[in-house]
C-alpha cells in the first residue's frame, strides 16, 4: 500500500489543481484573517482567545476563515478524489495495476490516505501562515489553550475534508466518466452547502410554523426540527464542531443553549468539555466517511477490470 500512497501523494502535490486550490484558500484565507486581525488589533493581550477569533471573525465583507473552509473545503476534498478510479479505467492503467499482487481495497485506501495527507499538508500550512500573520499584526504569541484548540480545529477540518474526499472517490467508482462524477460531486456539495439549509427551514416552517403570538415552545420545536434536518449535513456537523472548539464559551446547540447564554454570563469551557460537546459531530463525520468507503468497497471489489 505504501507504493500506492507515495505515488498518489507525489501526483497530488505536483498536480495543477492542487496548487491552484492551495493558493486560492491561501489568498482568501490570508485576506480574511488579515481583515479579522485588523478588526481585533485594538484588543489587549490577555483578551480571551484572540487567536481563535482570527478564524471566526469576519471583516470587510469577506467571510471568516472558518466559513470559507466550511463552504469551499468540500470542493477541495472532492477535487482530489472525483477521478481517482475512473481515470485509471479511462487511461487503461487499471488492468496493469490490478494485474499486480495488490488487494483492490488497498488501492483505494492508498489513494485515500495520499489524498488526506495532501489535504492535511495544505490545511496545516495555511493555519500556520494565518497564525504567523496574527503574530505579526497582534504582536504577541498564542497561549497554550489557543494552540491546543487550533490543533483540534485542524484535526476536525481534516476529518471534514476527508469525508468529501471519500465521497469523491466513491463517485469516481460509481461513474465511468470523470465529467459525470465531477458534476455529481458538485451537485452534492451545493445540496449540502445551500439547499439543505433552505430545506431545513422549509420543513421546520411546515411542522412548527412560527406565527405572531406563538409560545416559546413553538420556537424551540422549530429550532430543534431545523437542527434535526441539518444533522444529516456534514457541513452543519463541521460548523457545529468547529464552533464549539473555536468559541470556548459555546455550550451546545439549539435554543435552550441560546437562552442560557442570554441569561447567565458564561465562562469558557475547558478543552475537554468542548470536545465532549463536539464528540457526536466528529463521530457523525467519521461515520459518513465510513459509509462512503463501505459502498466503494462493495461496488469495486467485484467489478470486472476490463480496459476498453
Amino acid at each position: 500500500m505504501s507504493a500506492v500512497f507515495w505515488k498518489e501523494l507525489a501526483d497530488h502535490l505536483g498536480s495543477k489543481r492542487f496548487v491552484i486550490f492551495f493558493f486560492l484558500i491561501l489568498i482568501v484565507g490570508g485576506a480574511s484573517t488579515y481583515l479579522a486581525a485588523q478588526a481585533l488589533s485594538g484588543t489587549q493581550q490577555g483578551a480571551e482567545f484572540i487567536y481563535l477569533r482570527l478564524f471566526t471573525v469576519s471583516g470587510g465583507g469577506l467571510p471568516s476563515f472558518l466559513g470559507f473552509l466550511a463552504f469551499f473545503g468540500p470542493l477541495i476534498g472532492v477535487v482530489l478524489g472525483f477521478d481517482a478510479i475512473n481515470s485509471e479505467f479511462n487511461r487503461g492503467t487499471v488492468s496493469r495495476v490490478l494485474a499486480q499482487p495488490i488487494y483492490r481495497d488497498w488501492w483505494i485506501n492508498g489513494k485515500f490516505l495520499a489524498g488526506i495527507t495532501a489535504l492535511a499538508i495544505a490545511v496545516a500550512s495555511i493555519i500556520l501562515i494565518i497564525v504567523g500573520l496574527g503574530l505579526y499584526i497582534l504582536g504577541f504569541p498564542p497561549d497554550g489553550a489557543e494552540i491546543s484548540r487550533t490543533a483540534m480545529f485542524f484535526v476536525i477540518s481534516v476529518v471534514y475534508l476527508g469525508f468529501w474526499l471519500s465521497l469523491g472517490i466513491l463517485f469516481s467508482i460509481v461513474f465511468r466518466q470523470t465529467a459525470t462524477s465531477a458534476l455529481a460531486s458538485i451537485a452534492v456539495w451545493l445540496f449540502f452547502t445551500l439547499f439543505l439549509y433552505m430545506l431545513a427551514g422549509l420543513v421546520a416552517d411546515q411542522v412548527a410554523p412560527i406565527k405572531p403570538g406563538v409560545g416559546a415552545d413553538v420556537f424551540a420545536k422549530h429550532e430543534s426540527i431545523r437542527d434535526l434536518v441539518l444533522r444529516f449535513s456534514p457541513v452543519a456537523l463541521y460548523e457545529e464542531a468547529t464552533t464549539a472548539i473555536l468559541i470556548p464559551n459555546y455550550r451546545g446547540l439549539g435554543i435552550a443553549a441560546l437562552l442560557q447564554e442570554v441569561t447567565i454570563p458564561t465562562s469558557p469551557l475547558p478543552l475537554g468539555q468542548s470536545l465532549l460537546i463536539v464528540w457526536p459531530q466528529l463521530v457523525g463525520l467519521v461515520a459518513l466517511t465510513s459509509v462512503c468507503f463501505a459502498i466503494s468497497y462493495v461496488i469495486f471489489m467485484r467489478r470486472e477490470i476490463r480496459s476498453t
Binding site: R91, G92, V94, A99, Q100, P101, Y103, S307
Partner: peptide, 19 residues
C-alpha cells in the same frame, strides 16, 4: 487472486501507462 498475480504477467489488450 494475489497468489496467481505474483507469478503471472499480463499484457492487457488496451494497454495504458501514466503519461
Amino acid at each position: 487472486p494475489l497468489k496467481v498475480k505474483r507469478v503471472t504477467g499480463y499484457l492487457p489488450e488496451n494497454l495504458g501507462f501514466y503519461d
